[in-house]
Amino acid sequence: MKYAYYPGCSAESSASAYDATSQMVAAALGLELEEIKDWNCCGATEYFSIDSLPAYALVARNLALAGRQGTSEVIAPCSACYVNLKKVDERMGDYPQLNSDVNEALAAGNLSYTPGSVRARHLLDVICNEVGCDAVSEKVVRPLAGLTLVPYYGCYIGRPEGGFDDVENPQTLDRLLKGLGATVPDYSLKSSCCGGHMTQIGTEVALGILRGLIDLAAKLGADAMVVACPMCQLNLDVYQNQLNSHFGTTYRMPIVYFTQMMALALGMEAAELKFEEGLVPAGPMLEKWQAAEASPQPRKKKSKKALPMPEPLDGGDSG
């Protein structure tokens, strides 16, 4: 299937590794991505609080362009872009006045958009639910065995309710990483907020949030935290040094995109996957992986007295 591809602004700056590896992985999985010509910024979160009509029109323009290219689904790798595209599409469908106002604005650029005609998808959703984690797993040539990877979804996947995964305990990235051969602990902060732009508003608060996230990952023995959003990556990576000096901690947690880890498992060369763009070096993680490829690890035994654990539910349904 052919998808429109909406890279989003960060793909051209801080998240160029995400953009590059997304395209590499998509090609390897046979997903045909066609970049939306002349796309523009999605307005992130702020614009909606400043002036809503232009904010909606800004996003709708991208949907209109995708529709004009003849695609009915648009893939966004960035969680914020994804939520904005989805939100604008839904709201235009729910509120006729907004729909006509936005279309009036689009008409100035000879564009129009019918709500519901282009479906916004997160790249993680398409890979896990269209291609399928099992199909991805079958394509793995160099399993990520020996690596403990913590899946960090951030707050947007699953929110607002009705997304493609559970709000409180999403599973897609867990399944994907397990399929790649990694050890994936149950990371309870997986859908907590990374602080977003709180770093610009209240540094103390933001650093506290980030510290909690990295601290739990470190306790779980993570070799890296795997993310699906440029904002999450930026906050966890860029502010890690600052929080270390602020709290007197010594975290060196690489923050990598899931597409980078997929590319690795699919057999692509680490050197081409832009790991060096992260401020916290991913080198030690990669070295550990290469070493572990040679020697598999022993399993822990459970105590005889232990009481049975309840079976997990296949995906939660918390409201």
Partner: peptide, 19 residues
């Protein structure tokens, strides 16, 4: 009630959560 339905209470995630 199946406590697993409320993910944020961690039943079937954390061993020491009981019904």
């Amino acid at each position: 009630f199946d406590a697993r339905r409320i993910s944020q209470y961690g039943y079937a995630r954390y061993p020491n959560v009981f019904t």
